[in-house]
Amino acid sequence: MTVTRPTPLAQREIALVDLLDRLLAGGVVITGNLTLRIADVDLVRIDLNALISSVGSGVPSLWEESP
């Protein structure tokens, strides 16, 4: 009897659609900061915080009419 080990994740080929499906099923948090400065003077500061997740049909939409 031969026992085979599963291929490590780093060596597996995963389709982009499958990767997005896995990420959206659990949710993704994106955080970032961007500061534009000249001569040590902050001119523009942008802070980004985003949560990206899939939503099931059981969650009501803001655009649906209420009964």
Rank of each mutant, 00 (worst) to 15 (best):
I52C: 09
L9I: 13
N49D: 14
R12V: 02
E13F: 02
V28W: 03
G26S: 11
L62Y: 04
T2N: 09
D40I: 01
E13Q: 04
A50D: 08
G58W: 06
P60S: 12
A15N: 04
S57M: 08
S54V: 09
N33W: 05
V28N: 04
V3K: 07
I52A: 12
D18P: 01
S61H: 09
P6G: 03
T2F: 07
W63R: 08
V17H: 04
P60G: 09
S66W: 05
P6H: 08
S66V: 12
V3L: 14
T4G: 08
L43F: 10
D47P: 00
L24D: 00
V41N: 08
V29P: 00
T2P: 07
V44K: 05
V55C: 06
I46V: 15
P60Q: 11
W63F: 13
E64F: 01
L34S: 08
A15Q: 05
V59Y: 09
S66I: 07
Q11R: 13
A50L: 11
A10I: 09
N33S: 13
S53P: 00
G26H: 12
T2C: 04
R12P: 01
L20I: 06
L16T: 06
E13S: 03
G32S: 11
A10P: 00
A39R: 09
G26M: 11
V59E: 14
Q11N: 09
V59A: 12
I30R: 07
T31W: 01
P67N: 05
G27H: 03
P6Q: 13
S54G: 14
V55E: 14
P67H: 08
